[in-house]
Design a protein around this nucleic acid. Sequence first.
DNA 1: CATTTATTGTGTAAACTTTACGCAATATAA
DNA 2: TTATATTGCGTAAAGTTTACACAATAAATG
Lengths: 231, 231
Amino acid sequence: MSNTQKIKVAVDAIVFGYESNQLFVLLIKQKYGKFKGQWVLPGGFVLNNEGLTNAVNRELKEEAGIEVNYLEQLYTFGDDTKRDPRGHTISVAYFALVNPENLNLIPDTDASDAKWFPIDEIEKLPFDHNKIIDKALERLKAKLHYQPIGFDLLNKEFPFSDLEQLYMCILEKKFDRRNFRKKILSLGFLNESNKIQKKGSGRPAKLFSFDRKNYKAMEKQRFHFEIKFVK
Amino acid sequence: MSNTQKIKVAVDAIVFGYESNQLFVLLIKQKYGKFKGQWVLPGGFVLNNEGLTNAVNRELKEEAGIEVNYLEQLYTFGDDTKRDPRGHTISVAYFALVNPENLNLIPDTDASDAKWFPIDEIEKLPFDHNKIIDKALERLKAKLHYQPIGFDLLNKEFPFSDLEQLYMCILEKKFDRRNFRKKILSLGFLNESNKIQKKGSGRPAKLFSFDRKNYKAMEKQRFHFEIKFVK
DNA sequence: CATTTATTGTGTAAACTTTACGCAATATAA
DNA sequence: TTATATTGCGTAAAGTTTACACAATAAATG
């Protein structure tokens, strides 16, 4: 039985980026086959003797010349055996984040075309890729509440308002700026830099950075990140 | 490339059961091959043109004659290409729960042997099955806090003390009985039956049942299940 | 160059939730 | 009949979240 199994294994990546109050998803232009010329999620078939995580990282490098900041497995799509018209294929989807440094640097590798699309301007995509993006977005929204994942979408040093706006933008909610700041600061994993950022008018802002080491240590001591919201 | 892909796709199930203050995992005795005679997680290769969820349910029926109460995808194991000595295989692992009605009724189907093992008496298993069980247990513990999943491990009608003990047993924590009761009841999805259960000495207990319909409705209205603990 | 506008930083009181703990009610066991 | 086990309910203290106001510091405007 296992000799005759003809199921193919693919990986797909949903890479999120954030800049100027907008959430983006990375898509690439299909080069061959039935969907040639259409935008799809980066991904492809896993090679023999290649681990899944390796496969995603390889595809991201090949197709978009990108190295991500955060990567985790999202879900394996394989209930619909006709999800790929080329034949029975399951796809292990990965959820990834990049910070702004990696946002604008997508070299065109081997004639591939990669582009950032605002999340709310994504049309109907081939396969079940819209469904996959929906699931990834759901995960991103959920994780903002219980993991310090927002920092992976920001610069290393950021003013507090960046974090605040990122939360409001992605969660599509409004909440009190002052309470949010107090809450996050009270958790004790932000380092206050002595630098100061001036941008446009208004009082210049202190810059903060996420102290990942400290956070990891706190996590081991039964600390739980959690943020609830108002409005 | 995709023509020569030789990766096999399997599913595995981690089925949890609970009774008399003990958490159990379902294992089956391997019938053929290198690990013949050893206990492993139920599962097997996915058939051509078979969906993943179908594959798990089929294997559970074939190998243990069981239908589960709750089923969700856990994780896809495929970073280690040598996790199965028979060749490159990825396994989509599923997390399942059964209630006590299904706990003791495992018919021996086609010469297979299935058995419930207390979670703390599981020895070294073949493949990466111990790792899979660890991940499933972690998920179970986490979900008890943010999803009403405990009810799937109990009888339809149960005294409050059952729920309370299930939480303490699985989470390996102690907390205040009275506060726990108050908290759960305040969430408003338990129906109080007018039946009463007597068991041994002590005041007889009211029986409660989980109102799944009501819970689903509340969930849609932005209600979030959540339980934090003391001690 | 004084005034307006934009944005940051800090504080405090009220409402709500969680935690700690006492005791009456109702059964069986001795 | 008394002791023991277990259930059911209530209340005060501690902690957390929410709502809201105003001073500080810059650029933009006339």
